[in-house]
Nucleic acid binder design. Sequence first.
DNA 1: TTAAGTGCAAATCATTTGCATGGAT
DNA 2: ATCCATGCAAATGATTTGCACTTAA
Lengths: 146, 146
Amino acid sequence: MHHTQLLEDLRRRGYRLTPQREAVLEILATSAGHISADEIIARVRKRYPHINKSAIYRTLNLFVHLGWVNPTDLGNGCMTYEWHRDPHHHHLICHQCGKMTSIGAEVFTSVEKILRDEYGFTPCLDHFAIFGLCRECAKRKKRSRS
Amino acid sequence: MHHTQLLEDLRRRGYRLTPQREAVLEILATSAGHISADEIIARVRKRYPHINKSAIYRTLNLFVHLGWVNPTDLGNGCMTYEWHRDPHHHHLICHQCGKMTSIGAEVFTSVEKILRDEYGFTPCLDHFAIFGLCRECAKRKKRSRS
DNA sequence: TTAAGTGCAAATCATTTGCATGGAT
DNA sequence: ATCCATGCAAATGATTTGCACTTAA
């Protein structure tokens, strides 16, 4: 789906097509991965310096509500947003060194099946953050223990 | 491990055994499931009305650091804490109706294995919140769509 | 005795909100 | 001409912090 179609979709759903919304859409759709609200505000303002912070927050909430954007809590005190484009994937976050690694969604297919079949639950596994220890930090910890 | 042992453990590790810490420990260890900091403060104060909010937050952070308590973000804007006693389990949270269901940890054994074997990542799967749609809300949604 | 811990109030910081104004339809 | 969306500043609300005082060791 291309930008212009989405913008048209906005109008069709009864929302107004404002420059602010266009700007946020443009930034999100041309940015890869997770971006914090703060980062989004910065990038939007680099091009459109007058745009207000609240309008961007409101726009982000709208896009999330429309399902165009995934909000994810990466555990660093603020929400991050990700444009719905990349194939579904999850994140391994090392809570020692903070390193983040992406993993494919296949890892969770078995879990998804169990949840559906045994619990009747339809999980939203679009944006998942798994905390733990990365290889290096696990090694370092082991070494310091011995 | 019994309370008194834990309290002894505190001292052994060089921390002081204060009435505040005893109170928080007592509340946590006798409360089931996830409790928000606010709820913990309320319960502690019901018995020890003079205890300060900051001291409780600091104590919670200490207990988390000691691994006695699991902090979990259930997506409702505040952290919840859970005493390390119950067998490991996770939570299905319906983001339509908010209902929370506990599930056993076995569901994730396959994921854990893959992460370890293929990514060298040691996941901390103690406290996991999976958002999605519960059976009832999925049904309701389906119905309203048709 | 003395450093660690507490109480208190003030500070943070991401996010939201009330309200007057502006602009898309 | 509507009334939805924006800008601004102020509010919120969970959590943290600076600092003087207390207390467990």
